[in-house]
Design a protein around this nucleic acid. Sequence first.
DNA 1: TCTGTTGCTACAATTATCGTAGCAGCACGC
DNA 2: GCGTGCTGCTACGATAATTGTAGCAACAGA
Lengths: 108, 108
Amino acid sequence: MAKQAGSTIRSVRGSRTGRPIMALLDLLGRRWSLRILWELRGEPLTSRALRTACDEASPTVLQARLSELREAGFVELGDAGGYRLTPLGRELCETFMPLHRFAERWKR
Amino acid sequence: MAKQAGSTIRSVRGSRTGRPIMALLDLLGRRWSLRILWELRGEPLTSRALRTACDEASPTVLQARLSELREAGFVELGDAGGYRLTPLGRELCETFMPLHRFAERWKR
DNA sequence: TCTGTTGCTACAATTATCGTAGCAGCACGC
DNA sequence: GCGTGCTGCTACGATAATTGTAGCAACAGA
């Protein structure tokens, strides 16, 4: 499912509860979602650059996630090519930016 | 893999890069991880109460995630039974608590 | 002993993800 | 035109993760 950008996406788990946080947690809980947002926090990246940044994750999933994140309004495809965060996506990214500091302290 | 609490866990993706944030993003990016932390934000929950809170997610995954989150030091099993956040886990939870407000505004 | 908890597991079926390969479209230099 | 190299994106078989149902042992109270 979730074939191409703009088409249907598997209904986000938890959205039926009507609680947006559940839908958001589910979307962000899919593999590579968080990582993609994280890697896009800086400059726009082409699909291949993003793939490289994400440890060579398979393009299949990357495209799926990008489609979902685009439909959610967090990511967009720039005119000159390359993916980048929308203002909304940037806001979301800022939201869990403190994770960075936390992770550094966690560092098992 | 990741059979029981305290045993080995599949090495967290990204940990090889030496960047803790990657390991954390990977751990949190597994299905139900974020949701579990979210549901435990309040009172301790028994495994079955947690399962109910998580839309009847299958106990297999729930146990797997709980083991991982326990090994990571975010969740613990109370003496009288019931799962709860450790101080560290609570700190992590606070970190992405702003997501709640964000989700409310996002609300497609 | 019976009932109802607790945390936790087995196992087959279904999905998601991986990994490799490759497509069409576009811009470049030749 | 022709090739080269980029872009976003997809097909498809193999592998791993997740689901759903059922059930276990251990413990507590009646």
